[in-house]
């Protein structure tokens, strides 16, 4: 079994796909971080030109905001839980002032999180699809499936080894995405920013976003949390791609079908947002990171737990169907 998995991992590693995925990733990450850095410098320049002062004085603005918050926190008419969330913001701003960090400076830690947030709906699933789409279908189109199936191993073992190999590669790929975004953006920004505090832990309360139970955690922990969610989503997408790959004969159509599902799902979400069934579609639930950042419009009945459940059901369903189909499929020469 381990030999089988090893064989599958090696197949994936030595094909041209890995350089292709890494190349795509590098190009996008470099472009995005260059763009962000450029925009940031332009903003500062513009601000300085407008205000006429020599240097952009973020400290003044931050201190002012801080003193306002402190004033508010002392107001006895403010409910206790609101005060707690104000206190957390005070703590965050204090960190920035004490460590002499401008809160809006782009840093590598901020960039890798925002890349994951933006990419989790389309770009990262797409990379996973490139990785997974030809897993089975390629064996069919190149007729190598016969050689595989003539071995004295049951069919389910072959598919299982392929699936495990895919999980291993997906895990590595998520790590590589995180690593690349961090390193490349550091080259542009020259700031790590991994120990800055950030607010997270938003909850839904009576249909509105609630910041009362938020907590303050350092950026590196936050990055880890975000990438854990990306990892989960990637595994779900990999499982669904496996199903498509088992059903269709060529890897091109496998990628095509997955792309259509991803993009079509976004359209569905956009046009039919009132329709109850849309929230049970897997694409609608891919955007898990928004539950941590708190930057979303609450949809009735949708929460992190709900999305995770729906995605798990889709993945388990896909794996089950894949195994059934693969076991029963007639292989014609």
């Amino acid at each position: 079994m381990i030999a089988l998995i090893r064989n599958e991992v090696m197949k994936m590693l030595w094909k041209k796909k890995m350089p292709l995925i890494l190349g795509l990733l590098l190009i996008f990450v470099s472009l995005l971080s260059y763009g962000q850095n450029y925009a940031y410098e332009r903003n500062i320049e513009q601000f300085e030109a407008e205000s006429g002062t020599a240097a952009f004085n973020w400290e003044g603005l931050t201190t002012q905001r801080l003193s306002e918050l402190e004033e508010r926190s002392q107001n006895e008419f403010i409910p206790e839980e609101v005060r707690a969330s104000i206190d957390r913001e005070i703590e965050q701003l204090n960190y920035f002032i004490e460590n002499d960090i401008n809160p809006v400076t782009p840093t590598a830690a901020k960039f890798n999180v925002s890349f994951a947030e933006q990419g989790i709906i389309l770009f990262i699933p797409l990379l996973i699809a490139i990785l997974a789409a030809d897993l089975v279908s390629n064996e069919f189109s190149r007729k190598t499936i016969k050689i595989l199936l003539t071995r004295a191993v049951p069919r389910w073992k072959i598919l299982l080894s392929k699936y495990i190999a895919l999980l291993i590669m997906t895990t590595l790929l998520v790590f590589i995405i995180g690593l690349t975004t961090t390193l490349v953006s550091y080259l542009f920004f020259q700031e790590w920013g991994f120990s800055e505090p950030i607010v997270t832990g938003f909850t839904l309360f009576e249909g509105t976003l609630n910041s009362d139970s938020t907590i303050l955690i350092p950026r590196y922990q936050y990055t880890l949390l975000i990438y854990s969610l990306v990892w989960f989503v990637s595994i779900i997408v990999a499982s669904i791609t496996l199903l498509i790959s088992v059903i269709v004969d060529t890897s091109a159509s496998a990628i095509g079908i997955l792309m259509a599902a991803l993009i079509g799902g976004q359209f569905l979400q956009f046009f039919l947002s009132d329709w109850e069934l849309v929230k049970y579609f897997f694409v609608t639930n891919l955007d898990l990171t928004r539950y941590l950042t708190g930057s979303y419009q609450p949809v009735e009945g949708m929460s992190l737990n709900f999305s995770i459940t729906i995605l798990s059901v889709w993945a388990i369903g896909s794996i089950a169907i894949s195994f059934i189909v693969f076991n029963r499929r007639d292989v014609l020469v």
């Binding site: 895990t171 998520v174 997270t200 832990g201 938003f202 909850t203 839904l204 309360f205 009576e206 609630n210 139970s213 907590i215 880890l224 949390l225 990438y227 854990s228 969610l229 990892w231 989960f232 539950y291 941590l292 929460s303 992190l304 737990n305 995770i308």
Partner: peptide, 20 residues
């Protein structure tokens, strides 16, 4: 690492009932 991070995210983002 990812599994533990994933579990922590679920805990942080809170079961709706307890939060309520």
């Amino acid at each position: 690492l990812f599994v533990s991070g994933f579990i922590v995210s679920i805990v942080i983002s809170g079961n709706d009932d307890t939060a309520q």
